[in-house]
Amino acid sequence: MQEMEETLMYAQMVETGLSKVRTEQDMSAEEAAFQARIDAGIKIEAKDWMPDAYRKTLIRQISQHAHSEIVGQLPEGNWVTRAPTLQRKSVLLAKIQDEAGHGLYLYSAAETLGVSRDELLQALHAGKAKYSSIFNYPTLSWADMGAIGWLVDGSAIINQIPLCRCSYGPYARAMVRVCKEESFHARQGYDIMMSLAKGTPEQKAMAQDALNRWWWPSLMMFGPSDAESVNSAQSTAWRIKLFSNDELRQRMVDQTVPQAEYLGLTVPDPDLKWNAARGAYDFGAIDWSEFYNVLKGNGPCNRERLRTRVKAWDDGEWFREALVAHADKQAAKTAAA
């Protein structure tokens, strides 16, 4: 389980490096003042004093969030050349462009904490930093574009809206911008699902098949139950994490089931049932062994995703270097003139 604590991705498993939540007794005057600001809802900014563990936790979480955006372009990139219409292709490209932008906002936020872009990318390419487990699944049909926008971006929105209020200023502000753009992603996906569900029987079957494959991995995006987790408790004390994994997952299920019903599709969970007493849906047990296996690197696409990323970086090196050479040359010319 220690190994699992170290392999983490944004919002799925947070590692603070601490074995218990910091108490008043543990804190220096500086840290106590810092915690008081957090408790008062005051944002922490880049130049403010912060405990090492807070800084490290955020670097890890924000950078892995950024990596998720960039790697998240790959499953959808797979269907750009096979979109059913030019309009769908343009829209999908626009979504993929947005993911690049989201990666940028998040890398920028992480870099305010004193880490360089090169360091972050190196960690990703070496397999040391992770990205969300969901992107290790393959996209097998056009309907997957619908399911991903609807379920994956939908889940991301549920996770990201509370992050707009997190204690670290640059991260919170990046999330505000991301959330504005993410709503288009979810609607674009659901729009695809609606077209398919209202189409031919084959199209509807394709939509159902996509739902069948993406439902459980989407629920896993929120991470395992963290009721007992010290890391989650500390993250909550620092107001990085505002809701538990289970709360967010429940929210996702409750919001999404009626959406599936509207499509006339069946959620692939025989235990799914409205619980009137709770005012929420009861749902079946999640196979966490699959989740941990994907985290370990054994998901369907882990190796391919990383290979593609590393290749893109390596293949682009000549271009990045040429840009620098050009910039240096122009600067020298200007200086000499």
Binding site: L104, E181, L323, Q330
Partner: peptide
């Protein structure tokens, strides 16, 4: 609105256009 890395001013403006003015 944010920041970005670029090798020179021209690339910075182009990239800013791409990333920060899509809407």
């Amino acid at each position: 609105v944010g920041s970005l890395h670029a090798p020179d001013a021209a690339m910075a403006v182009n990239n800013a256009r791409d990333v920060y003015t899509r809407r």
